[in-house]
Amino acid sequence: MSETPGWSSPDQPNQPQQPPQPPPGYYAPPPPGAGPTIKPGVIPLRPLAVGEIVDGAITTMRRYPKLIIGAAAVVAAITQIIGLLVQLPFLNDVTALATLDPNAMTDEQIVEQLQSSVTGLLGGTLLGILPVLFGTVFLSGFVTVVVGHAVLGEPVTFAQAWEEFKPRLLPLVGATLLSGVLITVGLVFCLIPGVYLYVLFALVTPALVLERCGVGTAFGRSRTLVNGAWWRTFGVLLLTIVISMVISWIVSLPFGILGAAATGFSADPAAALSIGSLLLSTVGAIIASTITLPFSAAVTVLLYVDRRMRAEGMDIELQRAAGHGGL
């Protein structure tokens, strides 16, 4: 997919440039009858409506279930299990913090217990986040390659997708860490800058993977594509987060009920931190992540494709790559 001319940015050398093709109306797809709709893959090759972006992400997951759902299941299982094993040594600290009774302790004992418990809690949380972070980075990049093929309806194997993505893995890890630092700093100083930066750099992953550019260039590409459409991009990302949260809640609910039933619906905070309850929660998190992580990644890629079709006329390049010669 990386050889497809449509993925190269307009300022890359030795690539044919196309003038922007603004759609009629305000960020609306062409009306019926404006021309034939070419759809070789999961989306029509023209500027997309929000519903078409979401539908395209779901369609991609259905057409490539072994690649996307299979990879997501393996990544989710590995990361969640590692996260659980890493946090187990700190379970006593967390339990002590949850069951702390200030009335039965002196002030010195309370301070000492809080320091010990909070240190263990932070340590377990940070160590548990790391495998999830790297797993999410891998999956988002891998799904990006698959969606790139899905746009043109091309078949792709795991080996092909991995060969295309492998050289981009380390740059993507670096870009993700840098983006995370920038967004976190923005959130610490004020919520609004953090949200603004999150949306502004939302397209870094597809730009870096599909255009095979450097980390700095990927940030610049994301900023360029989002400029002028920040609110629309924010709306699509927010909708994706809401859908993912609802799916996670629906999937996790039965496992939460089973965990509560296993402890006799005890009101004791320590019961919720038992090994059995944590195992059930982990199973629920694995299933939920298997669905939500690739869905979110696919939406981001299709949002990137939509922005390039609107701002750079990439739909013509993709139509040519699909063998339709453009409109």
Rank of each mutant, 00 (worst) to 15 (best):
S2I: 10
E3I: 05
T4V: 13
T4A: 11
S9H: 06
P10Q: 09
D11V: 05
D11C: 04
Q17I: 11
Y27M: 06
P36I: 07
K39L: 00
G41I: 00
G56W: 12
G56H: 10
A57T: 05
R62S: 14
G70C: 12
A71M: 15
A104N: 15
M105N: 11
D107Y: 06
E108V: 07
E108Y: 08
L114W: 07
T119G: 15
L127I: 06
G128E: 11
L130I: 15
P131S: 14
F134Q: 06
L139A: 14
S140C: 06
F142Y: 15
T144E: 08
V145E: 02
V147W: 04
G148S: 11
H149D: 03
V151I: 15
V151G: 05
V151S: 10
L152V: 09
G153T: 13
F158N: 03
E163I: 02
F165M: 02
L170W: 13
A175F: 12
A175H: 01
A175M: 02
T176P: 01
L177M: 14
T184L: 14
V185Y: 09
G186Y: 03
G186A: 07
L187K: 03
L200T: 02
L203A: 04
E211C: 00
G220N: 05
R223F: 05
V226R: 04
V226G: 06
A229V: 02
W230D: 01
R232D: 08
G235V: 07
I243F: 11
V246T: 04
S248R: 09
I257P: 00
A260V: 01
A260C: 00
A261Q: 12
S266L: 09
D268H: 09
A271M: 04
A271G: 05
I286N: 11
T290V: 12
T292E: 08
L293E: 07
P294C: 14
S296I: 07
V305R: 09
E312H: 12
D315M: 13
D315F: 06
I316Q: 14
